[in-house]
Write a protein that binds this DNA or RNA. Structure first.
Lengths: 366, 366
DNA sequence: TTGTATGCGTTATCAT
DNA sequence: ATGATAACGCATACAA
């Protein structure tokens, strides 16, 4: 059995008839190497199927050779897509991509300990992790180049969207449709340290206020960014004495849950209750859900690129704000203010200020 | 405080008043170390905030210290969830988790070159990559411990489901509902080397045959495992001279597309055309889609565990077959065996509160 | 149980 | 442009 073929740099040097130093230089494309020599060395290395030992290289050079991508989750839509974008870019570099998951950052710290990171990676790519929360802070102190995706911090490289604007777009859209009681399915209960959430809350409120509407705390419910959470949140909203006629959810997945809650209550999205999500999830199209789309994969790519730039000594601390886009679909376009209320006489009246039909008041299961 | 003071094993040894060898042994929990000494060393290391240099350690020991998880995609539901499961257990080991993406394995090879893997990882975790396709084969030859998830090969460690049985369950369910023309939305066009696809095709055919039905090639269309592909496939099926009254899709995402196609054609899933998917996607519940659920996260966990066992010299080549479960929902339970019969006036979404008969066969899931 | 000494495969410094 | 050689930080036979 031809177990391992420990072809070392010395073998290459010997066969090529040069010193290991020259081989090293040639292989890494360093200057001060005769083109002829380099060519020769490359050929020999190829023929011998030589592969540098990362361990040795790293030990000698002091570089770790890896990039840590740290995110709360992998399987959730937003994170999966950002990660996919980042992976593509990092894979085309010669850094290893190490993945770390933290779980919900508002819960007990599962953030990878510094020890787990130190000496193993040269840079950090943080996805959806607010730099201000206690467990993340240490990661920033460890002195490695960092790039933030989906959150931001003065002086740190990052790529993010205008969450305030996104939420405002969504809310304003609902207002334009004639709605006056607009609910909010948020993430975690406020107050919390998550910038994106706070920004979206701000956008929501601002839109309401500038339309002369008063944000009603009773209409703001946490949905924890899950489908089930969104469903429960919608249930809670429907159970209010005066339920909303429209809802803005801070994520598509929560909006999906909201849609289901509506159906379970016999209400039709877009007709009885308007719903707008946030993300641009593929399923939003399938479910005919209006949403604020963000360029997730691109955010991952760009973030990775920014980090690589730093690692290569190039520009440090660059920051990019990407645009979002409101995708209007059936869940909000069939304005019910005067819309197809024919099928549901109960809600035909009262313009935008109408109440949700009685059936909405039914108790929420689960 | 000063930057980082590269605390080495020698510093620890000096401060602790022992040799570096002892420190090394103590820190790694090796036997033949006086408990008192070990304790002392540990304390000193802790106080000095010592972190072993992976590079040095790996160079000296010859181990790479990493596990490569290789999958076609990250952002697709199945892969994201399997990966999440694997991540959890690998993270609790002391191997680094390196992620590699290949893109669709039926396309030009983007499989990570051996050179990219050799010396960097100690083991391979292949997700949804059939060992028989040309690009994957080399990975198996490189001599590293391998575990397969979602595919299998005699002699190789792996975790998979009974795809034949899953497809049979789905198809039989439709047959039981009275359907006789049952379409199939497959993955890639047959023939192809993907075991899971072939198995599901087999299950589909067997169910039909054992019910005295003849599988009609005209009713088998590729959907490429995407929502859009599924939508197109459904469109194709509906355009047949004699369209199916029911459809089994090899993935939930394709089934979602099929649902959308139906709606666009003014047909109601579960009433005009029955649809069954495959996966157990969360959205299946939201969309009231009947599906064959597989324990994806658990597959990831188990796969990682099997690989770790091999790496630790324990059991080699273990194989696990996990059970699937048919989750019956509205997309198939409102039996209406007459295909595109006259549309019914009723709107039945309100009653979509079906429970999930976890049919006889579910092992692990949540 | 503990210490000594050597080697792991590269990179980088200094000559040449 | 190229070569010799000292680190790099740790693991591990071997000795004690």
């Amino acid at each position: 059995m031809s177990r391992n073929s420990p072809v070392t740099i010395r073998d290459v040097a010997r066969v090529a008839g040069v010193s290991t130093a020259t081989v090293s230089r040639a292989l890494r494309g360093l200057p001060n190497v005769d083109p002829t020599t380099r060519d020769h060395v490359l050929r020999v290395a190829e023929r011998l199927d030589y592969v540098v030992s990362p361990a040795a290289s790293r030990l000698a050079s002091g570089r770790a050779g890896g990039i840590a991508v740290i995110a709360p989750f992998i399987a959730r839509w937003y994170f999966g897509h950002v990660l996919a974008g980042a992976e593509r870019v990092i894979q085309s570099s010669d850094f290893d991509l190490l993945v770390f998951t933290t779980g919900d950052p508002s819960e007990p710290h599962r953030v990878p300990s510094i020890r787990r990171l130190r000496r193993r990676v040269d840079g950090l790519l943080l996805i959806g992790l607010p730099p201000e929360i206690p467990d993340v802070e240490p990661l920033l102190q460890i002195g490695l180049p960092v790039t933030l995706i989906g959150s931001r911090r003065a002086g740190l490289s990052g790529v993010f969207i205008d969450d305030v604007e996104g939420a405002r777009l969504a809310t304003q859209h609902l207002i334009n449709l004639g709605h006056r009681r607009i609910g909010l399915i948020a993430g975690r209960p406020a107050p919390n340290p998550f910038v994106a959430e706070n920004d979206r809350l701000t956008g929501y409120r601002e839109a309401l206020r500038s339309a002369g509407l008063r944000p009603d705390p009773q209409l703001q419910v946490p949905g924890f960014f899950t489908v089930d959470g969104g469903e429960r949140a919608m249930g809670t909203l429907l159970a209010r004495r005066s339920p909303p006629s429209a809802v803005f959810a801070m994520s598509d997945e929560m909006a999906f849950g909201a849609l289901r809650a509506l159906r379970r209550h016999g209400l039709r999205p877009g007709e009885d209750v308007a719903v707008v999500g946030f993300d641009g999830h593929e399923m939003a199209e399938v479910l005919d859900l209006t949403t604020v789309a963000q360029p997730v994969e691109h955010m991952g790519e760009l973030g990775a690129r920014l980090l690589l730039d730093q690692l290569r000594g190039g520009g440090r601390g660059e920051s990019h704000r990407l645009d979002v886009a409101l995708c209007i679909r059936g869940s909000s376009s069939r304005a019910s203010a005067q819309g197809r209320s024919a099928r549901r006489p109960a809600i035909s009246s009262a313009g935008a200020n109408r109440d949700v039909p009685r059936s909405a008041r039914l108790k929420v299961d689960r």
